[in-house]
Amino acid sequence: GKMTGIVKWFNADKGFAFITPDDGSKDVFVHFSAIQNDGYKSLDEGQKVSFTIESGAKGPAAGNVTSL
């Protein structure tokens, strides 16, 4: 299901971020390909987002990341 959280930090050079979920679970890795914005895919620290949890090769990662 959809979860919500806050972007903890975003590394534009490497194209990934971490989200701190609102439910208090541990921070979730985000690859820029999961960001659903049109055009430039970036996130801002402190931004509120919704996302799903996908199981990636290196463990859980956020999918369908959308700005709220």
Results as ranks from 00 to 15, higher is better:
A61P: 09
Q47N: 05
F32H: 07
G56T: 14
A34P: 04
E45I: 14
D44W: 15
S67I: 14
T4Y: 06
K2G: 06
G5V: 01
G46I: 01
S42F: 12
A34S: 12
Q47K: 05
T20Y: 02
K41E: 10
I53Q: 07
V65N: 15
G5I: 02
Y40L: 14
G46F: 04
A12F: 09
F51I: 03
K26G: 13
F51M: 02
G63K: 14
D22Y: 03
K8Q: 06
T4P: 01
K8G: 02
I6F: 05
T52E: 08
V65E: 15
N11C: 15
K26M: 11
V28I: 14
K14A: 12
D22P: 01
F32W: 12
I35E: 03
G15F: 04
A17S: 01
I35P: 02
F16K: 01
A57N: 12
L43Y: 05
V28D: 00
N64Y: 05
S67Y: 02
F29H: 06
P21C: 03
N37E: 09
K58M: 12
K14Q: 10
A17E: 00
G15Y: 04
W9D: 02
S67T: 02
F32K: 06
F29P: 01
S33K: 05
E54D: 10
L68V: 15
K48S: 07
G39V: 07
G63V: 15
D23G: 04
S33L: 04
A62S: 10
H31P: 12
Q36E: 11
S42D: 09
A61H: 11
A61F: 13
K2I: 12
L43N: 01
D38N: 12
L68H: 15
G46S: 02
A57R: 08
K14P: 02
I35M: 07
A17R: 00
D13E: 14
T52Y: 10
Q36M: 12
A62R: 04
I19E: 00
K41Q: 11
K14L: 14
K8C: 07
T20S: 13
W9L: 04
T52N: 08
A62Q: 12
V65D: 15
G24T: 02
T66F: 00
I19G: 00
D22L: 06
G59D: 13
V49P: 00
L68I: 15
T66D: 15
T52C: 14
F16C: 15
I35R: 00
F18N: 03
D27Q: 04
N37S: 09
K2C: 15
A17M: 08
S67L: 04
G39L: 12
L43I: 09
Q47D: 09
N11H: 06
K14V: 09
T66K: 08
G59F: 07
Y40I: 12
Q36Y: 09
F32I: 14
V30G: 00
Y40W: 14
F51Y: 13
Q36H: 12
V7I: 15
V49K: 00
F18H: 06
M3I: 08
I19W: 00
K58P: 12
Y40H: 11
E45T: 13
S33Y: 06
P21W: 03
V65Q: 06
S33M: 04
F10M: 11
W9P: 00
K2R: 12
A17P: 00
G5C: 02
S25M: 03
V7A: 00
K26Q: 12
K8A: 04
D23W: 03
V65K: 15
I19S: 00
M3P: 02
K8Y: 02
S50Q: 10
I35K: 01
V30F: 14
E45M: 12
P21A: 02
F16N: 01
E54S: 08
K58S: 14
V30K: 01
F51P: 00
K41I: 13
F10N: 02
P60W: 01
N64F: 07
T66C: 15
N11M: 05
P21I: 06
G24A: 02
D23S: 03
Q36T: 11
K8W: 02
S42H: 12
F16D: 01
V28P: 00
I53A: 05
Q36A: 12
K58Q: 13
S55Q: 13
L43M: 08
F51D: 01
S50N: 06
